[in-house]
């Protein structure tokens, strides 16, 4: 297969319109060493990424998260922010006391 054609097909592959298997019929027809080598190593790289397995969640991570969430205010009530505002107001009042 000519290089130009090969790259056009790879472009189709990026567009999700083509699967690597489509190339199986053409593999033997690659005109030059470069095209064959490029295609095979490119395909293998993608396959290796696909083979990365899903890891399980570490044992206590879910519990840790739930514990943190329980101490976390939701958007509805933001006591920590309100507390800061009150404190800030108090500080402001203190600062405004005239010096005699």
């Amino acid at each position: 297969m000519e290089q130009e054609k090969l790259f056009k097909l790879i472009s189709d592959f990026f567009d999700d319109e083509l699967d690597f298997e489509f190339f199986d019929d053409f593999e033997e027809n690659f005109e030059d060493e470069f095209s064959r080598c490029f295609f095979n190593t490119f395909r293998k790289t993608v396959e290796l990424c696909h083979q990365i397995c899903e890891n399980d969640l570490p044992e206590d991570l879910h519990e840790k998260l739930i514990m943190r969430l329980e101490h976390q205010p939701s958007q509805k009530n933001k006591p920590s922010q309100r507390l800061v505002c009150k404190k800030a107001k108090r500080r402001k009042k203190v600062r405004n006391i005239p010096i005699e």
Partner: peptide
């Protein structure tokens, strides 16, 4: 991971 879900909780509304 924890930060992601805490942010999601804060922004769920």
């Amino acid at each position: 991971f924890q930060e992601t879900f805490i942010t999601a909780w804060k922004k769920i509304k």
